[in-house]
Amino acid sequence: MTVARIDARFAKLKAENKAAFVSYIMAGDPDLETSFNVLKGLSETGSDIIELGFPFSDPMAEGPIIQLAAERSLKAGTKIAQVFALASRFREIDADTPLILMGYMNPVENMGYPAFAKACADHGIDGVIVVDCPPEEADGLTDALDAADVALIRLITPTSDEKRLKTLVKRTKGFVYYVSVAGVTGVKEADAQSIAGAVKRVQDAAQLPVVVGFGIKTPERAAEVARIADGAVVGSVLVDALAKSLPGNSPIETKVLETAGILAQAVHNARN
C-alpha cells in the first residue's frame, strides 16, 4: 500500500468532488492510549488523512500549542518505537486512511534512514514530513523512503518562489502541503485570497494534490480552503481542544473529536 493508499484516497475524494479533511495530532499527548482513541475517532468523524506528529524536544517551527503537546508527550516518556506501534494498532482497525508521520530530523537521523523507512512501511505509515529537512539535505532520506514505497511529503511556503518550487516538487509523492503563512504553527490566520493563486502554482508545478494548512481555525475558513485546494489541514485547533480537556473528567478525546467532526463536515460540504 503506502503511496498507493494516499493516491487511492485522493482519487476517491476527487470522484466525489470533495476536498480532503486532514487532521493532525501529536502521538503520546498526553499518553498513547488517548492517542489511539483519538486516531480511531478521527477516522470515524471524517478525517480523510491523518498526520501523526512524533515528538521532538526542539520543535523550532511550532507555535506554543504544538510545542506544549510535544512536551506533554515526551514527559509521558513517548519513544519513537511506540509511535510506530501506535500506527500499527490503528492499521488493524483502519486499512484505508493514509497516515502521515510528521516531525523533525534528529529522531530520524538517530534511527538511521533505512531503519526509519522500513519501520514506516512495516507499521502502515504512508508518508513522512520532516520539517527541518529541505531538499538540499533530503537525498539520503528520500532514497530510503523510495525503497520502502513511503512518500516524502514536502512543505511549500509563501517564501517559495518559482525557482525554489521546481526544487521542492522533485521526488515528492502523494501530495504537497502548502504552508499558507510564513510563521509557526497555529498562530496567524491565512488569507484565502492569496492562497488560491499559490495553490494553483503549486498544483501546476507538482502535478499532485495540494493541501493547505497553518492558521485554519474555524469551519468557515476550512470550507473556504476546501473550495480552492485539494484539502485542508487542521492541527493546532485539535491539539488545543485536547489540551483544554486535560483537567476534565470526561474522556479527553470527546472535545477533540467533536471539533474534528464539525471541521470535517465543513470541508466535505464546501463544494456543494
Binding site: V131, D132, P134, E136, L155, T159, S160, D161, R164, G183
Partner: peptide, 19 residues
Amino acid sequence: KGRFGDFGGLYVPETLMPL
C-alpha cells in the same frame, strides 16, 4: 553545501530556506 566533512549543512524549515 556548507559541509565540513560529515558536519554542517542546512537543515531548516522551508519558510527559511530562501532567506
